[in-house]
């Protein structure tokens, strides 16, 4: 059974300038213990999807339409706020891009780590503190007793991200949402954090929703990938297959625009043009204006996400044409 299922999720925000369709008909699923990478540039709806999953979208500003998010068979969108709160931090946990700002400056590391343990595990403060120290050690920080008494401003970004991870895994969640977990960190620290995530996932059989714009991170950690563009999933498939055989022109563009060490190019390949204005998305394929393989009807008709083979789906007429 799938642990997490997004079924035709659509989220729209009503703003003064008009309706922003942040996420449209997004469907994907994550099996228990699996890592799904969600890639796309900023504003493509990655983070909105994650917030919808946590039930943290501001309502009524955000409209969630005709869709379902199921976690362990339960529909999260119908869940009462109280039950959803018990799920958050307990079965679904999340880590953020900026560990510096995601920790409270006036509370010590230990105090903050105790919070979910007290809230969900009903531990006494003393037991929670011991557990907090164990968690700090668990994420590979030396001198846990001292770190527990330290305050966020005394630690480095990498350490803080480890603390955030410790906090997220404190109640042994079944799903971890990692929203750009390494973006704000130094490259050397990035590798360490990815290694830690990989290790935790293996040991705790924890599924992950890995949201990033960095294909390198996806290659390191993910089992499957969903590529998002302008609020829609344009391609989805196993990571190896998708990297080796990208079918959507946008995915190809993304892969081509990564710098590859050792290969010297006069210019780094870039995808020309810009992401369409979310206030006025075109009726057809949102990528059509930038697409090198555009066909005549691409701007009028929108390609549906179709299955190519076993688990590889793509929403592109050109790709369909090739496979057909």
């Amino acid at each position: 059974m799938k642990l997490l299922e997004f079924d035709q999720l659509s989220v729209a925000f009503d703003t003064e300038a008009g309706t922003v369709r942040a996420v449209q008909d997004v469907s994907f699923d994550v099996a228990a213990g699996e890592v799904l990478g969600v890639v796309g540039e900023s504003g493509c709806g990655k983070s909105v999807s994650a917030l919808a999953l946590m039930g943290l979208l501001p309502r009524p500003a955000a409209r969630i339409a005709g869709s379902a998010i199921r976690f362990g068979g339960r529909s999260l969108l119908d869940l009462p706020a109280d039950e959803l709160r018990q799920l958050r931090g307990n079965e679904i946990a999340m880590i953020f891009q900026e560990p510096m700002s995601a920790l409270n400056p006036v509370l010590s590391i230990g105090e903050q780590l105790c919070e979910p343990l007290i809230a969900h595990r009903r531990l006494t403060p003393r037991a929670a503190w011991a557990q907090a120290e164990a968690l700090i050690a668990r994420v590979g920080i030396a001198r846990p007793a001292e770190i527990a008494r330290a305050f966020p401003h005394q630690l480095s970004g990498g350490m803080l991200q480890r603390v955030m991870i410790a906090m997220a895994i404190s109640c042994a969640p079944r799903l971890l949402i990692a929203d750009e977990p390494t973006t704000a960190l130094d490259v050397t620290i990035q590798a360490q954090i990815l290694e830690l995530l990989r290790e935790l996932r293996r040991e705790q059989q924890m599924a992950m929703l890995l949201i990033t714009h960095d294909l390198g991170v996806i290659a390191e950690l993910a089992d499957r990938v969903a590529v998002m563009y302008a609020g829609r999933v344009v391609e989805q498939g196993p990571v190896r297959e998708l990297f080796r055989n990208p079918r959507h022109p946008y995915t190809r563009g993304l892969l081509a625009s990564r710098p590859v060490p050792g290969r010297r190019l006069a210019r780094l390949a870039a995808i020309p043009g810009q992401v369409p204005d979310p206030l006025s998305l075109p009726p057809g394929c949102a990528f059509a204006a930038r697409c090198p393989e555009r066909r005549t009807d691409c701007e009028q008709r929108r390609p549906a996400l179709r299955r190519l083979d076993a688990d590889h789906r793509v929403a592109c007429f050109a790709a369909e044409g090739v496979s057909a």
Partner: peptide, 19 residues
């Protein structure tokens, strides 16, 4: 962000406010 983080951790409103 840290207030969003407390919400993500599923803490109660009272605890988020006072602590």
């Amino acid at each position: 962000d840290f207030m969003l983080a407390t919400e993500v951790l599923g803490l109660s409103t009272r605890r988020r406010l006072f602590r």
